[in-house]
Design a protein around this nucleic acid. Structure first.
Lengths: 222, 222
DNA sequence: AAGTGGTCTAGACCACTGA
DNA sequence: CAGTGGTCTAGACCACTTG
């Protein structure tokens, strides 16, 4: 039923920009309940094919987008899932005032004392991902007493600190000297960076830039 | 109601790995209808927080993932949405047998004659994105007679050729000489590449590698 | 084979928002 | 303020999958 509706849009019955009948009418046409149409429409809306607005009605998107859902697993699981042995090396841990760009990412008006953690995740003893993380101890006091030699901040946070929302960005980055050393590659090598910042309510939790080893790909089906 | 349920999982009532009561019981507990629980659970499942299996029940994911939904707009809209003037330059168009890696991406057993199109998209006359595209004329014959000087293959395809599924991948890439020339940057500059392949049913439509200008970021909220 | 989630119906009310 | 989508209920049946 839902698939029938989806087909009706994809097969060209309705064209980009077209307005669709209201749910109730579509339900009558198709001989099904309104809730069914509603659910089908919700799906299509989630996939980015249509736009729905109360009172405005439902329209086929005239500017279609490719919507990709990316799963970014906990790094240990990604490495072990690839059949490699996971390792972790703490490189630096210190409390410091964060630079302005980190404060901006976190939505703070002014720089702030935070815990900075730099670490490298290893797959079969070879560098896989270098992370440079700032954690806000005002939001997550427990991080200050955690033994970061043995516990990855990454995993401790996901296990203990739920977040309400966050931002993710992907970009390419040329390896500078410290990154090249951490990832065991030539300076200037093109690397993929994932930047993530999370909050619980209005309180920032952490902001991290993770840089993957050369050749890393992030992929999914659409 | 849905939010109440979501809260119940996020607030630590249920822990990673825990099994949740069946929908019907939760509905009784919360004093709501089973359909409501079902919808809430569906949401949580979509966000990657829980795993649901018929007969197996519902579990809080023990290996949480960060699930990011990325919208990749049609490039012209992205450029115009940024307030810049859109431009397009065709660089090459020829029919040729595709290399083995392109055939592999498309799921073809053997290389195949296809149309190759290389083009650059411009924002305010400056290079924004370079695309190297292979189109399968067996699936999309119309592409052979299209005037690619004036029409971007990108837009023509999204307007005329629906796809049933596809694959997308992101990775970093150092600029080789032709790319550096196309994007007006130094050779070796780290660039972000988006590789996309689409099919209609079992028939491959197109496979494209798009490389964005230096500094390009792809971001979203989670 | 039984237990669980997935989908559907028919009906109601609510919430947002565009004319 | 009226029209549309969003959410909810109470009940039914189906489909998958695991023990």
């Amino acid at each position: 039923m839902r698939d029938a509706l989806r087909g009706r849009i994809l097969d060209g019955t309705y064209r980009p920009g077209d307005k669709l009948p209201r749910d109730a009418d579509l339900a009558t046409d198709l001989g099904c309940a309104r809730a069914t149409v509603q659910r089908a429409m919700q799906d299509l809306s989630d996939s980015g094919l249509i736009d729905r607005r109360r009172k405005g009605g439902t329209h086929v998107r005239s500017e279609p987008v490719t919507r990709a859902v990316l799963d970014i697993p906990v790094i240990r699981h990604e490495i072990e899932g690839g059949g490699a042995r996971y390792g972790y090396r703490l490189q630096a841990r210190r409390v410091a005032v964060c630079p302005p760009d980190v404060a901006r990412r976190m939505g703070l008006a002014a720089p702030h004392r935070m815990l900075r953690v730099r670490a490298v995740h290893l797959a079969d003893d070879r560098p896989y991902l270098a992370e440079d993380r700032w954690v806000c101890p005002r939001t997550v006091p427990g991080i200050l007493t955690l033994d970061l030699e043995t516990h990855s901040a990454n995993e401790w946070l996901v296990r203990t600190t739920p977040y309400s929302h966050g931002e993710v960005a992907f970009y390419a980055l040329g390896a500078d000297a410290p990154l090249a050393a951490a990832l065991d590659c030539a300076p200037g090598t093109a690397l993929m960076a994932i930047e993530r910042t999370t909050w619980i309510g209005a309180a920032p939790i952490t902001s991290v830039v993770s840089v993957a080893r050369p050749g890393y790909r992030l992929g999914t089906e659409i």
